[in-house]
């Protein structure tokens, strides 16, 4: 068996607004569109994914929040309806997805070996979180690849952003070892926005783009700083600045997804591909990917 590898790492924000705006048959709500900059960026990245040979998507989500360790989805199928607790008016999505349980168990074992508290989730009634569903739908609308969802352990609440970073690094490195041993080709997904201060009121028509803008200029400037570092391949610097960035912009990076993905990918020093940046109900969202293959890596935007 040849060594497994990570063939792509994606930063894939999950505002349910983006699925709502697409009007896929799985979603009950109806929209007139909206947030095209992000949706078109996602469509382009989804086309790239179609050209890549891979076996599974492994996604780290802020919306399966666990306080007692890191949990992995551990049953082969999940079929139910996901209703967003914050935006139930926008997102009521009927999902039917497959899990690569073998890979989940391998990552679970490798992670436990490195001293992290872990748990397999084997309750068939469990509802898969809307972060997983939104990011995976937008990256792979045909749902033809199995996934593994990893919960986000909220170390930043219990300890500090610094502790969260250390644990997310260890988790990423353990996942990478498990992937290598598995012989599989894997796409990693870190599912989150950048700056994350929301407006606490909503326009009568949520997709009214005349009402959409970043929550404040400071969030925008910080987001641009981070994206510049993505572009320049300065991911070690991004890791270093993360506690400050997360605190200043209430960023959704607080869950640890980006650090996890960067650690698993050996902290890339090559440029990221940028697919778009736009605000959703005031939050800052960037779609980006890290392609380890020099031949296929492009300057997208």
């Amino acid at each position: 068996m040849s060594k497994g590898e990570i063939v792509l790492g994606c930063l894939a924000p999950h505002p349910p607004h983006l699925v709502y705006a697409e009007n896929p048959p799985q979603n009950e709500a109806f929209s007139e569109g909206g947030w095209e900059t992000l949706r078109w960026g996602y469509a382009k990245l989804a086309r790239k994914l179609k050209t890549i040979d891979y076996d599974a998507i492994v996604i780290f989500t802020p919306h399966w929040q666990t306080y007692i360790g890191t949990h992995f989805l551990g049953l082969p199928e999940f079929k139910s309806k996901s209703v967003d607790p914050v935006f139930p008016n926008l997102f009521r999505y009927n999902y039917d997805l497959k899990v690569d349980v073998e890979l989940a168990e391998a990552m679970h074992e490798e992670t436990a070996k490195s001293g992290i508290i872990t748990k397999m989730m084997r309750n068939p009634d469990f509802r898969v979180d809307y972060g997983t569903i939104t990011s995976c739908h937008l990256l792979n609308p045909s749902w033809d690849k199995p996934i593994v969802t990893i919960s986000s352990n909220r170390n930043s609440h219990y300890y500090s952003n610094e502790v969260m970073i250390e644990q997310a690094k260890a988790l990423g490195e353990a996942c990478m070892r498990a992937i290598e041993k598995s012989g599989k080709k894997v796409v990693l997904v870190s599912s989150h926005s950048l700056s994350h201060r929301h407006f606490v009121t909503e326009a009568p028509l949520p997709e009214d783009m005349s009402r959409e803008h970043i929550y404040n200029h400071s969030q925008y400037v910080w987001d641009m700083k981070i994206i510049d570092m993505f572009r320049n391949g300065q991911m070690q610097e991004v890791v270093d600045i993360m506690p400050e960035y997360t605190e200043q912009t209430i960023a959704e990076t607080e869950a640890g997804g980006l650090i996890w993905m960067m650690a698993a990918m050996g902290v890339p020093s090559y440029p990221a591909e940028i697919y778009g940046y736009q605000s959703v109900i005031g939050t800052g969202n960037c779609i980006a990917c890290w392609d380890p293959n020099n031949e296929t890596r492009e300057l997208v935007l």
Binding site: W64, Q65, T66, Y67, I68, H71, K119, M121, R122, N123, D125, F126, R127, S151
Partner: peptide
Amino acid sequence: WTHVDDDFHYLGS
């Protein structure tokens, strides 16, 4: 509905 807790899913539905 049938609810399952994010952390304590192993205790049951």
